[in-house]
Design a protein around this nucleic acid. Structure first.
Length: 562
RNA sequence: GCGCCCGUAGCUCAGGGGAUAGAGCAGUAGCCUUCUAAGCUAUUGGUCGUAGGUUCGAAUCCUACCGGGCGCACCA
């Protein structure tokens, strides 16, 4: 009930939802309690929920349980007494007491207003302004430029992209950023790996291997020979190649658009690392010990202080990363930065949060950790052959899913997004490969294609639809489901852990309600143009909502035909 | 040893104080001279890891334990 608890707890008004009746219900309950029992209860203490089972009505209240102890009466007696008073208002078709709960059923015409709003406002139906004037950066993927993107990057990548979409829907000024680690030790290691591949260096451990390195070596023999004493420079060149030919291409095939590709090396080139360091020095947050320089992160929640300048004078990774975040807040002035990382970095996040706390921006930085992913095929973990390198790359994944890249990416996106970040995920290749109703992605896409099919088949009728004709359960339930989107979007953007996975569940639910409606209610009926017109409105509304959730938020293509 | 995450149907996962615990896949039985059957309907299947505690009420919160994953560098 996270969703409904949010609606009860939120301090911000939900822009539009059928739940706008919530406040009215609370007032009515308050007044009835006062009339029936002479007790005053604050509306803030009244909880309205939306029961999962429709037969319990549209809303329910557990107020009787809260009052039972105080009044020394059974919840059901209290509920029954309250119902008699509550039913006097005319908002509800039915108010009843069921095993202590009070259940409310809305009059049907309350739903028509929602559908009118969807048709009138289209995309903006789901938008709101709660993050207006907020400059938010979502940093994600940020994989080292030492090799192609992997499965884990896929999860983080799609999550970051979709979260950005949601934040933008709430009025935020969102920037997507990829931090290119082209300045650290891993670049030198990449350079050494190149030399190993070229036969100019003997080294067994701590090197990268893969076809992409061998290929680059083959095309750049001369250059490598010339720079063989400077592994960092070789690594830098190779990293550039990897960025351009692998990572950027993969990001593009994932249909993710970054606003910034931010270079780590540029931090050094612009002297920002020194600047950040002297800032910390001046604040007396550093000290010398054992010939190294330490940052007092333990004063900010870390379990011990961290070295930022090594004995040999080099920076540890902590220093440029702190400089990077410092720059985000002081120069670029983001109100909020959300970093998405794989769970194997969780030790790192604690350290960085402490590090950023020394700068005074602890509350402006949020880390999202996505748990591990493994591929499963025929019930067993799938592994790549040694020849291509042990890790599964994004390209491998798309190939395994099959079909066109764009479609494979949509499948991958939907699959990754349908699990909460905390779930250790098994990616079911057999289901992903399935191009049928079994695969939830196609289930949702098919619903959209159906709306298009019906609309294109119908004759345009410009007379104002009479929505009151939509009285079937299947119709009302569909509208009800459509009405939830605005609150869902807002909840995802403003709840601490950003549960974007709820979008895919929602898309499936809408598709399900729509398919059900399709089965129960014939839309185009020449004998009954008025009803046809009303139902076409509902189909249009569904198409709008599925379009928003699929295209604008989740970020998959929604085809007109399948 | 310490820290983070997970343990829910045969499988993959939602739900994270409320009413008989949900979905998809797998299984079973039906539905196409009618807007796309890539669909719909019905149905089988669960001691919510274990044991305590808090509560009118616990899958949900607390504690301990048992399983599994991942982290605990002057690597990044």
């Amino acid at each position: 009930m996270l969703f409904w608890r949010y609606l009860n707890d939120n301090k911000v008004k939900i822009k539009y939802n059928i739940v706008m009746f919530e406040d009215k219900i609370k007032d009515e309950i308050q007044s009835s309690v006062s009339i029936c029992f002479g007790e005053h209860i604050k509306t803030a203490d009244i909880i309205i929920e939306k029961p999962s089972d429709k037969k319990f009505g549209d809303f329910s209240s557990n107020i009787s349980f809260q009052l039972a102890g105080k009044l020394k009466k059974s919840p059901n007696d209290i509920a029954e007494k309250l119902v008699i008073d509550l039913i006097k208002t005319n908002n509800f078709e039915k108010v009843e007491a069921v095993s202590g709960f009070i259940n409310f059923k809305l009059k049907k015409e309350k739903y028509f207003k929602v559908l009118e709003d969807i048709l009138k406002n289209k995309e903006s139906f789901a938008k709101n302004n709660v993050l207006k004037n907020k400059k938010i950066q979502v940093e994600f993927i940020s994989a080292n430029p030492t090799g192609p993107l992997t499965l884990a990057n896929g999860r983080g990548g799609y999550s970051g992209d979709t979260l950005s979409n949601v934040l933008a829907f709430c009025g935020a000024n969102v920037e997507r950023e990829y931090y290119v680690n082209d300045g650290g030790n891993q670049v030198k290691i990449l350079g050494e790996s190149v030399l190993v591949s070229a036969g100019l260096l003997k080294k067994e451990d701590d090197i990268y291997r893969g076809e992409y390195i061998d290929k680059w070596v083959k095309d750049n023999k001369k250059e490598i020979e010339k720079l063989k004493e400077k592994p960092f420079e070789i690594g830098y060149l190779c990293a550039k190649y990897v960025m351009e030919n692998y990572i950027k291409a993969e990001v593009k095939s994932m249909k993710i658009g970054f606003d910034n590709w931010y270079s780590e090396k540029s931090l050094y080139d612009r002297g920002l690392v020194e600047k950040a360091l002297s800032f910390l020095d001046n604040k007396k947050l550093t000290y010398e010990k054992d010939d190294a320089k330490w940052l007092k992160t333990s004063e900010f929640g870390d379990d011990k202080d961290r070295v930022i300048v090594k004995t040999n004078g080099e920076y540890t990774y902590v220093m440029p990363d702190i400089a990077y975040h410092w720059e985000k807040f002081t120069d670029r002035k983001y109100n909020q930065v959300i970093d998405i990382l794989g769970a194997d970095h969780h030790g790192y996040t604690e350290r960085m949060l402490a590090g950023v706390a020394t700068l005074g921006y602890r509350d402006n930085l949020t880390y999202i950790l996505t748990q591990m992913v493994r591929l499963v095929k025929n019930g067993k973990e799938f592994r790549m052959s040694k020849r291509k390198g042990v890790v599964v790359t994004i390209e491998d994944l798309f190939e395994l899913i099959g079909g066109e890249t764009s479609e494979a990416s949509d499948v991958a996106r939907f699959f990754f997004l349908s699990r909460s970040f905390n779930t250790h995920m098994d990616f079911d290749l057999d289901l992903a490969k399935e191009r049928s109703e079994k695969n939830p992605v196609f289930y949702v896409k098919y619903a959209y294609a159906r709306t298009y099919g019906i609309l294109s088949k119908s004759n345009k009728n410009n007379s104002k639809p009479n929505l009151k004709l939509l009285t079937e359960d299947a119709e009302i339930e569909l509208i009800d489901k459509l009405s939830e989107l605005p609150a869902l979007v807002q909840m995802i953007a403003t709840t601490g852990d950003y549960p974007v996975h709820l979008l895919t569940s929602y898309a499936i639910e809408v598709a399900k309600k729509f398919h059900h409606f399709y089965d129960k209610c014939r839309v185009i009926d020449e004998e009954n143009p008025e009803l046809t017109n009303a139902r076409l409105s509902l189909v249009s509304g569904t198409k709008i909502i599925l379009g928003i959730v699929g295209k604008d938020l989740i970020g998959i293509d929604m085809p007109d035909k399948m």
